[in-house]
Design a protein around this nucleic acid. Structure first.
Lengths: 341, 341
DNA sequence: GAGGCGTCTTGGAACGATCCAGAGGCTGCG
DNA sequence: CGCAGCCTCTGGATCGTTCCAAGACGCCTC
């Protein structure tokens, strides 16, 4: 690194300038109430004059804390995750800032190993904690991190082990879909179809249960109104065509915006226009595409800003070693109503 | 931070275990060729046995380098930037990993101050370098950072000062649009309209020049075939309607996917189908929406992976204080052909 | 066999902060 | 007046690594 114009000020420099000892300067920063006001001001003056900022590395070494939070960045998925991650990341960085933390991104050597990458950062004490995001495919990370007593918070429930004790924050997909059912039913729709993911997807089944339960609650039919498949446009299209040939639903509730795009195509194939012509479509994720496609896709929006806030809150508890009784937060999404419904 | 099960191994621990001095262990890691093979192996064995990893903070303190690269994350924009950032970030993290660097995200207190946030990280020696991304609105950061001799690389040319000497990497928007003109002309289109951003946008004018020049080169008309406005769907729609009423272009070349979405809507308004019906549309950015909207929007794709690689390469030069003669890289985008053309 | 050289190894110092124990001045109480 | 106790401030030690200068050792040469 090229040298600075002035040699960087240190505690000792400031101490000399203020005519006090190093420790006094340190106290001025970390426990100002220990100083006599007069001394404090003198030290402050010296700090300002010299433009002093504590050296991170030295502080980290001594306090054994880096105030960095590691986040493993997953390969950009083609579909739904893209765009979501953007929003989440920004909120997370913002929330971390409030807490005096920074976000350190890292990537795995081996993408398929969900543990890869964590170890290295941990062993070198480069980060204090982690935010774990890809819990949807099981969460070996949680067990691994917990065994090592590493502070971390997961975005996403431990579906496979519902009683896991580690802190997590998640979005109530089920409630979100429930909202959508309400919305559609209020507009007079009765045959509301579900276009979802495979049974093996915990998240997919959670969202589906929101549809199923609310439909039953309102006394609406669900038989032969449900399709399941992968998260692709193509699947959405095929599923919609099949459903139309069957029970002729008037509304399609989709597990993701990607699938919803396929459904929209299928409707266009039939020469009908969603929103008008008595056909409604609702997606999930409020992706950019949902906002952009005419006439605007109604979609369930995840409160990622809130998720970030809660994650950081739990992280702070954990870092401060405050025991929290039930460190689990489920946030309700909201419905963004647009032209397709 | 909660204590580990075993107290973390240190250089001294390893040295004791291997029966050598601290320095020898350090050499085993940093300049293994200084050691006799036999000694090296013994040390290696001890390192493996104890699961030793050098402590980052201590190393940072001693070497005055953090191997962290700061990236200021901007508020998620509604439009084109979203999704792009995702792709870029991932590539950057990946490239940084190759170089032994990590990416540290930070946010500004005051979003409107382009310098905010850099100072704090710099003064505390938390990062070694920066990647600066928002050069499109002028780049006071570049001047500021350069004055402080801080290593950094910009993503985006210094439009306002073309001869600035700091390293930067950019995408050749002009060439990308040129590609699109070729593509459309090859398909027989002659009246190809430009739907772009305001004259005040450097990037917008750069892209437009690609259209203008290539059109002239091929002897195609451009008068009354150009519209300029803001980056919204609504503008795209209005502009397309106006153009259709005028010169009746058969193809629309758009400065962004967002604008292109508006153009697509306008075409649908007229009851025609892009791709079929002799109307073509091309966008810019290859956003998620472009991939998802039927029948697929042809779009210019920025080589963000390549951008990240080049940025890190320049960053390494800079960090190693290697003088590079002309530290500027312009990468060519490619055209993703889809249904709309 | 002494001197010189190269290879390998060593202990001490330094990076810049915080922790710790204790010194000095002041007040208040017996 | 003496002493405990509080407040304020100090100097030394420490975190774990790398830099530095010098020591130990073996080998070659004269």
């Amino acid at each position: 690194m090229p040298g600075r114009h002035r040699p960087m000020a240190t505690l000792a420099t400031v101490a000399a300038a203020a005519g006090v000892s190093r420790q006094t300067v340190s106290n001025a920063l970390n426990s100002p109430d220990l100083l006599r006001p007069e001394t404090l001001e003198r030290v402050q003056q010296a700090i300002d004059d010299l433009g002093y900022t504590p050296n991170r590395a030295a502080r980290n070494l001594r306090t054994r804390a880096s105030h960095l939070v590691g986040l493993r960045i997953e390969p950009a998925l083609q579909g739904n995750a893209s765009g979501l991650m953007d929003r989440f990341l920004h909120s997370l960085v913002e929330s971390c800032k409030e807490a005096g933390l920074h976000v350190l991104l890292f990537a795995a050597e081996d993408v398929n190993d969900p543990l890869d990458g964590y170890d290295a950062l941990l062993a070198s004490a480069a980060v204090d904690a982690f935010v774990v995001t890809d819990t949807y495919r099981g969460n070996p990370q949680a067990a691994w991190l917990e065994a090592r007593q590493v502070p971390f918070v997961a975005f996403g429930r431990p579906w496979a082990e519902p009683h896991a004790q580690h802190p997590w924050v998640d979005v109530d997909g089920r409630a979100g879909v429930g909202l959508a059912v309400e919305h559609l039913a209020d507009r007079g729709h009765e045959r509301i179809a579900w276009v979802g993911w495979q049974k093996s997807s915990y998240i997919g089944e959670d969202r589906r249960s929101g549809w199923l339960d609310r439909m039953h609650q309102r006394g609406l039919p669900t038989t032969r109104l449900s399709a399941r498949g992968e998260d692709t446009i193509e699947f959405g299209r095929r599923a919609a065509h099949a459903l139309v040939e069957g029970e002729q639903p008037t509304a399609f509730l989709c597990v993701s915006d990607t699938v919803a795009m396929g459904v929209l195509q299928a409707i266009a194939d039939c020469g009908r226009r969603p929103g008008a012509d008595d056909v409604a479509v609702v997606g999930f994720d409020d992706s950019l595409a949902a906002q952009v496609i005419p006439p605007g896709l109604t979609s369930v929006r995840q409160p990622l800003e809130g998720v970030a806030v809660e994650i950081v809150r739990l992280l702070e508890d954990r870092l401060a070693m405050r025991a929290v009784e039930h460190p689990h937060v489920i946030l309700a999404p909201e419905l963004r109503v647009r032209g397709t419904s």
